[in-house]
Nucleic acid binder design. Sequence first.
DNA 1: CTGTTAGCGCATTCAT
DNA 2: ATGAATGCGCTAACAG
Lengths: 363, 363
Amino acid sequence: MTDPPHPPPLKRPTLAQVAALAGVSVSTASLAFSGSGPVSGAARERVLAAAEQLHYAGPDPRGRSLRQGRSGIIGVVLEERVLDAFRDPLRIAVLDGIAQETTPGGRGLLLLTDVGESSLVMDAASMDGVILLGCSPRIARSLDVSLRRNIPAVAIGGPPMAGVLTITLDDQQATEFEARHLYDLGHRDIAIVALPLDTSMEPGALTADRERAGTIQVTLDRLRGARAVFPESTGVMARSSLVREGMLAGHALLDDPERRPTAILAQSDLLAAGVIKAADELGLDVPGDLSVVGFDGIALDRIVPHDLTTMVQHAAEQGQAAGQAVLHLMAGESPKPVHFRSSFHRGGTTAPPRSRFPNTHSG
Amino acid sequence: MTDPPHPPPLKRPTLAQVAALAGVSVSTASLAFSGSGPVSGAARERVLAAAEQLHYAGPDPRGRSLRQGRSGIIGVVLEERVLDAFRDPLRIAVLDGIAQETTPGGRGLLLLTDVGESSLVMDAASMDGVILLGCSPRIARSLDVSLRRNIPAVAIGGPPMAGVLTITLDDQQATEFEARHLYDLGHRDIAIVALPLDTSMEPGALTADRERAGTIQVTLDRLRGARAVFPESTGVMARSSLVREGMLAGHALLDDPERRPTAILAQSDLLAAGVIKAADELGLDVPGDLSVVGFDGIALDRIVPHDLTTMVQHAAEQGQAAGQAVLHLMAGESPKPVHFRSSFHRGGTTAPPRSRFPNTHSG
DNA sequence: CTGTTAGCGCATTCAT
DNA sequence: ATGAATGCGCTAACAG
């Protein structure tokens, strides 16, 4: 925060000046703008004319916000830089849902990226409410400030936190459902392509050590769901939810024909798309040689020509629910916690495993 | 704005209360927090202790912002709803560039979607500066309010507007360059897949009427560039920059073998990817049977297995430039206008057209 | 219908 | 090094 000492504060006309020019009191002028009180048509006319003449653009939000005790701004905390956060179509859909609910009524969304000196931002910004996207414990630090300010907070996913209305997701159960789907098809040797376990972790094999050090709830939950069916399953951790990352992971898991799993459970659709592309490059048929499931249910049908088997998340609705919840909290109400369930989409990327021993094929 | 009458303003501790508890004056307490003046270590200690005890989370941004005349908030105006705006990877990159430059120093980005009652938001939000993304004239209305408030404004692309520092792009020249590339390869019969001409326009054929009614600068500029080389060229207008839309457009242009162009100039890489997919579906070889160029230079190599010939825009840098410019304006300086040039990327999706009359093939 | 009064919470003079 | 006073621009009570 080493700005030049005093960025010259532009001089703007004030309501008092307008009132003076119009020959009315400030309160009358105020009413003329807000329309929330009885003002004679003539008075209003004069005020507006005076405003026009002075290039007065309406009440200054700063004064208004100080007086009213609210700013009309809702913060959205992202855990990554914008580029990474919005590369994920799911997150965009969530944000869109939030925007749909909250921006009517003259409210705005303040984007806060929780990187570096973000706590400064949370300090400096005046928000009426805050929505948290993403959910490592590091975020708790930022959150702490909001809570101390008594700013209503809503989180989507993530661990339950005191003072935060959390919109809960079924990551674990949903993944377990998928895993069971693979199990029921006959798969016994599956591999996982996981999302990052921690923001500061390098991608690589999914070792027990790294898992223990993991902090990102959604990754851990989905892992847990997979382990409920395949306790010994392992795999690789990707750097982020990107097709490219999925390809790298896919090659890591599939390049060696000796140790190929019969199915891969990817923790996002984009990762799954990458895995399928890797399989394509290796000449493997999906689902003939390899079953693949994703997670999210984003429209992927143009990236890979497959109809991906996945768990569909209702992202826009999650965003809307978060938006509604924070508005309710701001109004002093006590909205009930919401839980979202994913829906299973049986696409065309899963099938029974090809027998390892074609000659025992009892057909 | 029909909120319940009086959303109960949460009671938060004030600096005065902290000062009282600490046994110092408010000004001393203020200095203890801002650190911008001489305070004895002992006094600071006492103030911080008192703050801790009262759960005081630091100076309230509202009072501070009113007093200092600035809020630390930079507005970003989008012309569409979040979902549409951020489906475009280019826009995300631009936003990321903006964030990189502006969010250090404790500033936040306020997302303003210019839909519906947006002008309310521009009225209500206190911003120190504003950056405009997208550029239909409708935006001028929103802008008007900011300008009247003397809020520094920077636009990326779009028509020059009074009072706005515009970061100019070379859409027209860049498209002309691409068109000439196709011409030089021997193409004489090309079709255009255009971005929307107006936010309220249905997709369909690119007629002269619709073009005249077009309002979106970037689309018009790129059309103009194409026309500089192929004055008679026509094509279709897509609904937005999406692969799916590109496929629809591609089929519209390619399904009838009798009237197939030898090359398609798409106004975005995503549209180009869709065109290529449509060509694939029709059994057409790219670039053998059809040359395709895009625009933007986003990393597309995982969506279609082609290396797309395109004009690379330096999106992140554009965002950074806009961020820097608005910061300079806020500091009272007069930054110079910036112009960005796209770079031509010769990929593998363009080649000379196959002769229409193989038997005249003079090889 | 209109004007008067009184702060909202804070950073900043200018004294001491 | 500290404190007292001032007002940033506005809106909400209340009084007329």
